[in-house]
Design a protein around this nucleic acid. Sequence first.
RNA 1: GCCCCCGUGGCGGAAUGGUAGACGCGGCAGACUCAAAAUCUGUUGCCAGAGAUGGUGUGCUGGUUCGAGUCCGGCCGGGGGCACCA
Length: 857
Amino acid sequence: MGVGVARYNALESEKRWQAQWTQRESFRAANESANPKYYVLEMFPYPSGRIHMGHVRNYTMGDVIARFKRAQGFNVLHPMGWDAFGLPAENAAREKGVHPREWTYANIASMREQLKQMGLAIDWSREFATCDPTYYARQQKLFLDFFRLGLVTRAYADVNWDPVDQTVLANEQVIEGRGWRSGALVERRKLSQWFFKITGFADDLLSGLDTLERWPEKVRIMQKNWIGRSEGLRFSFALKDAAADPIEVFSTRPDTIFGASFIALSPEHSLTEQLAADDPKLAAFIAECRKGGTAEETIETAEKFGYDTGLRALHPFDDKWQLPVYVSNFVLMAYGTGAIFGCPAHDQRDVDFARKYDLPVLPVVIPESTDPKTFTIGDEAYTGPGRLANSRFLDGLDVDAAKAEIAKRLEANGTGTRTVHYRLRDWLVSRQRYWGCPIPIIHCQVMCGMVPVRDKDLPLKLPDDVSFDIPGNPLDHHPTWKHAKCPICGGPGLRETDTFDTFVDSSWYFVRFTDAQAEEPVNRAAADYWMPVDQYIGGVEHAVLHLLYSRFFTRAMKKAGHVKVEEPFAGLFTQGMVCHETYQDQAGAWVLPEDIEKRDGKTVLKGTNVPVTVGASEKMSKSKKNVIAPETIIDAFGADTIRWFMLSDTPPERDIEWTQEGAEGCWRFVQRIHRLVTEAEGLAPAGANLPATVEGPALELRRASHRAIAAVTEDLSQLRFNRAVAQIYTLANAIGQAAAVDGAVKREALETLVLLVGPMMPHLAETCWEALGHSTMIAATRWPTADANLVKSDTIRIGVQVNGKLRGEIEIPAGADEATARGAALALEPVQRALGGQAPRRVIVVPGRIVNVVVAG
RNA sequence: GCCCCCGUGGCGGAAUGGUAGACGCGGCAGACUCAAAAUCUGUUGCCAGAGAUGGUGUGCUGGUUCGAGUCCGGCCGGGGGCACCA
């Protein structure tokens, strides 16, 4: 520590300001205000016990927005809670013998402590965990509302059974045939399950995407693809053997019907199965198709196989035309009818298949300005627009007209139906687990069937005395819990022992934050005031499921009269991951960053000369040990340093790489700001007026201040934190350069610097604000406004080009007319040289931008 | 295989079609110091040149334009998503 230099003590200062904010309830949000509202929310965390760098990045961004909007005069809601149900708590119970509730609440306590150390501007009075009975009781009530509205259904379904987790997985949770958490090979089982009828909202969820202008295009496309709407025609092909049932197909290209050259059935099609019973070769073929999984992207490049069943189908418009019926591995049972007609000329998969089995390839859609007689298809299908040919009554029509004509004819004779298919399936919400929200239904053993639990009997609480000694659902093998009287007849009944998927919990928490204490699930007035969330921030890994379910839930809640909005999140931002270099020792084992050191350009195990291999920067993960614990950084440098790092350099949507050097650079800047403020000499007292005239270096400093205000305001509004950071560095540099400037101008510059830094490094800013003689807090201070006259300068320097190449620079008054710029440019020596005494062929003057002299040659 | 995104100094990255490389990290040189750390100042795309300066430069390749990192076509490379969706 330098002699006589008071070094900024971040840890002490941060503790102090955090206490101040808490004591003054600085971030408490009122449910009504004269100011406009702004609701900023980060995806709430699962309480694993410790925060990681991903949390730090996420919550820092949200916090900057919250503080910035608050300073701009908005009534800001910035809450925090816990996505607290879920399997890890049960795993901990099985592994360590600790009750899921204790484990979860202990984790929440330690994570809350860590988040508070980050200095987040959160209204903690609204905090809740989804495992609080006060929360899930309201969720049960919502479920009953949905139940009465017919949005809930129960169906026997083939479900994915995870034998390790002893639970049912959604299709989305099965990855490469394995459970997404356990990694166990998934088995198929038929179980009676609860579903939310999200498919009923498919069209609405799809069209709603168009209104989400402040969502990343990428996420909207992913949701669109997930919903997967396709319009087509469902119709039948009769078989030559009249005794057999016709084969029903679904096609989005019925216009290509006269290019058909085969029919293909899925290996799982019922007809396939019938035929296989008497055809061992087909049975063997089916077994072959099942190998390696069916839904794999990897098999897309795999070869297409077919098996000719010997059956012949009749063309719907010509019963003399027979088409071979194949079974093929590229037809999916889960989509459409599990059967297709193949038109090789206009579908890539079909042409691949046709070439392999030597089937006809007849083009029936001809691109504009191409001769039908010479148009042929090689190994590539033509899927573009065009006019029909070789298609009898369709000849000459365009694709859309031909589709309509076919549909019209087949509908008229009763063999076809226009159909819309969705990829989206109903949301399976029941889980055979203990640590989740119980589903409030009683199965009457007498005659009443499935009966909702009465409102007055809510919450239906989880029992505490459960055992995890045996596999399966503890609720199910609890000795007494599931026995209940039927609410209708009073006879014996059994409680539903399934609990909800935790995606249900996270599908409405953002509404509950608007009044976390409300007796009803939603305080309608509070929800109407705050919803929608103005800015939601989280990882792109939730692009489909969480966000789609939340959009569905909000619509369902609207139907039930709980909210007036349909879309929960007006703005969405998906931040990038936090990465770090990876290290391996000579045996190939992963090494923690804290166990290495870099010396003389080499990377070695700490305190030794044993070399370490430095690998690519990858997402921080325990398995590769490339993790930095946020608390080690906060303990060493303070929260402001880690926050500043997260905002600096890398655009927020991209992956950021954590480096020790970068962190030290941030720390140095913290110190530098503190020094600039505390060592400033000749400052005017707080509140002093600026001199009447300011010129020279003082004017330049004023300009730097106001340019910084304008730029940082703009950048923060657009979530371009990295650019805002660069602007602040520029201002700090300008202040350092203007050492001779003092008085009120210097004060203005320093106060600007401190105010602009406020949302990003709030503790440092408060300390500096106080050092500048203020008794108020930055948390209660308005954002500065830029003086437009100071943002622009009197003269500007613009480039001068000759034939588009830079040849010089001129300095002219800011508002100078074209003639002035032109004259100054032409007078330049390099321009004169290029002209060689001749007149320019053309001079382009873009005011305030550039002059380009075009010289003949 | 299809869809989406991205290729700019040693590194992270700036740049409404208008002076490419802001800002940071790292490097180099200097000041302060017995010395180091910290701090401050200068410098830093590449090539040539002592220098002024000149040439060159945003993955490759065509095009549009007075002018292209930016727009359009083709290719190469990297990343993400997916469902062979008829």
